[in-house]
Design a protein around this nucleic acid. Structure first.
Lengths: 188, 188
DNA sequence: ATATATAGCTGACGAACGTCATAATAGGAG
DNA sequence: CTCCTATTATGACGTTCGTCAGCTATATAT
């Protein structure tokens, strides 16, 4: 049952997209090949026609998740006069906290990527660099200042989201999101 | 081969300590009961005499890891006149980045805890509350201001560490740690 | 001193893990 | 139009997962 090159490419892309979602939702070690392939509408045996190993998929899925995150960042930035404020409001919202599968790649699978081998981390590093660049371009000041600002703002966002998720739906969770959001809004 | 109550309690504590370390190093889903028990010097079968399930251990290990983190925080704070600066310097050091097993519980297993059930998250929430309280006590200003400051600072630290770990040993990793450290030192 | 309760060890369970032959099938070259 | 080749699905592999029953041995209670 051979498929066209187009269909094959579509299947490949589908696997990566589904994996990027599931990895963020359940963690890299929390999902099996079987579940990923089933969610992509294929059987688990077909996996190794597309990827040599789960590690290879992890690298591609990490890059995909980061690319999706950048897209969401761009979209959220357009919903406010101050681009970063719009992004921060979305990032620290309840909706984002409760939907890791479609959310920030670093908050969702960053900790897992930190445990992968060097090649996977290198791919992730490139996507992160692109995200930092993109945020820095939206911030005022000279380039190097904007870049440092972008890194610091990312760290605040990511840390706050992971903290808020780890304490479940407690009052503390809201307090963390609100506190950091207000601080970032005040800074501009 | 029944043991004394003391030995049983020691074994229990050893299992929790070892799990708190391994969970931070490899992730909750990255370690099995077998590996934990072997590291504690026992066999896997003895596990269910101590815990009803892996989930129950995850809750205890999460609390233990947070308690250890608070201890390390207290110690690092004493190495500088400004308590928080000493803590931040340790937190954002290469040593801490490369030793997740003995480091911050939130950065190491926070993302995993976010995927656990409510009871585990509730236990983790208590430990986090204690950590926030402790840091707030070291910061100047009225209590509510210090508390918000503590939350914001934690978010920056945790986010920076997770970012730095996820990009491996790249220049970007150092840049993230340095940037956030300098910013926090400048803020005091 | 004897009996009982309880600790850890052994071994096993079904399920899922990552991986890989092999078989079946249809696109693409001739 | 036919054959080759590429690509997916089938099914199985050895391992490890979380979990538990049964055994052995010993600390504790009587």
């Amino acid at each position: 049952m051979r498929l066209t090159k187009e269909q094959r490419a579509e299947n490949h892309e589908k696997i990566v997209k589904v994996a990027a979602k599931l990895f963020r939702e359940k963690g890299v070690d929390g999902v099996g090949i079987d579940e990923i392939m089933a969610a992509a509408g294929l059987t688990h045996g077909a996996f190794y026609g597309h990827f040599p190993s789960k590690t290879a998929l992890t690298a591609e899925a990490g890059a995909q998740a980061l690319a999706e995150s950048r897209l969401a960042q761009r979209r959220a930035a357009q919903e406010s006069q101050l681009p970063f404020v719009g992004f921060a409001r979305f990032y620290l919202s309840d909706r984002h906290r409760d939907a890791p599968g479609g959310g920030c790649a670093v908050a969702g699978m960053g900790a897992d990527i930190g445990r992968q081998d060097d090649e996977v981390q290198a791919v992730f590093s490139q996507g992160m660099e692109a995200a930092v660049d993109e945020l820095a371009a939206q911030l005022p000041g000279p380039r190097d200042v904007a870049r440092r600002d972008a890194i610091a703002k990312y760290a605040s966002l990511i840390g706050a989201l992971i903290m808020a998720r780890s304490v479940g739906k407690t009052p503390l969770s809201h307090e963390i999101l609100d506190t950091v959001r207000q601080k970032l809004e005040a800074e501009g």
